[in-house]
């Protein structure tokens, strides 16, 4: 399968935008990815091995978290995984301590 790497994590894949790995499931693909590029592991997984909450993994156009088998979902050889960190934020509701109001 192909795994598309987001800009901030390419520092750990020798600047490769896309990495091809073996693996019959999403979990196996991610495991192969982190075996090839061990520094990726800490950026994708918590110390107890769970996918970090802000890391989204899509199998083609499906969010893996919402697939029935989640990371155990089977992956066809021609399928594409995309790793995409979340993007969110915003100003504060009140001009109080810690607010962006200077």
């Amino acid at each position: 399968m192909k795994i598309h790497i987001p800009t901030p994590l390419r520092a750990y894949t020798d600047k490769q935008e896309t990495v091809s790995v073996a693996g019959a499931t999403v979990a196996e693909g991610l495991d192969e990815l982190t075996k090839a590029f061990p520094a990726m592991r800490a950026h994708l997984f918590t110390p107890d091995g769970k996918l970090r909450s802000f890391v989204n993994v899509y199998l083609d156009d499906e969010d893996v978290r919402y697939l029935p088998a989640k990371e155990a979902t089977a992956v066809a050889p021609e399928a594409e995984l995309t790793i995409i960190p979340s993007i969110a934020g915003g100003c504060c509701s009140l001009p109080a301590a810690g607010c962006c109001r200077s």
Binding site: T7, P8, A11, V55, S86, G98, C99, C100, R101, S102
Partner: peptide, 19 residues
């Protein structure tokens, strides 16, 4: 109606290093 400064929420939710 708030300044162009990052907020604690912006910081907490920022994960795109180098961006």
């Amino acid at each position: 109606d708030h300044p162009a400064q990052w907020s604690q929420t912006d910081y907490a939710e920022a994960h795109w290093f180098g961006c």
